[in-house]
Design a protein around this nucleic acid. Structure first.
Length: 113
DNA sequence: GTGGTGACGTACA
DNA sequence: CTGTACGCCACCA
């Protein structure tokens, strides 16, 4: 089987893995970095598989509004929020506070291709 | 092969 | 600000 088959997912995982501690990013940002700016949904799907990958902190990936849209997919109900708060990120009503301060832009932190 | 759905984003009324 | 609509493309039935 060819791993390249999951090239898209692989890339998403790679970026997600590189998210520093205490930082978060958005699906759109990753999607754009991968060249699929209009396919942010696919990033979310990729994260779906990431749920089984410890190396992929899906809880650090939120939507552009800083909303924990994916918390529904996590184990518990507030697991995602707890993980973020555990990293020093304030989360209220499933929304990240000071998002700009915690936002991690792959374009800025990762080498462009 | 077709259709419905989705952890999104943007646009428009 | 809220609600509605569309696009985008991979996955599933």
């Amino acid at each position: 089987m060819k791993s390249e088959n999951k090239n898209f997912f692989r890339k998403v995982y790679e970026v997600a893995e590189q998210i520093p501690y205490g930082r978060v990013t958005s699906y759109g940002a990753i999607a754009k970095y991968l060249g699929a700016a209009r396919s942010a949904r696919m990033v979310g799907w990729a994260m779906n598989g990431a749920g089984s990958m410890e190396s992929v902190p899906a809880h650090r990936v939120v939507n552009k509004a800083g909303l924990l849209t994916g918390k529904h997919h996590f184990d518990g109900t507030n697991l995602m929020q707890q993980l973020l708060e555990s990293e020093g990120i304030k989360v209220v009503e499933n929304q990240i506070q000071n998002l700009e301060k915690h936002f991690w832009d792959p374009f800025k932190e990762l080498p462009l291709k």
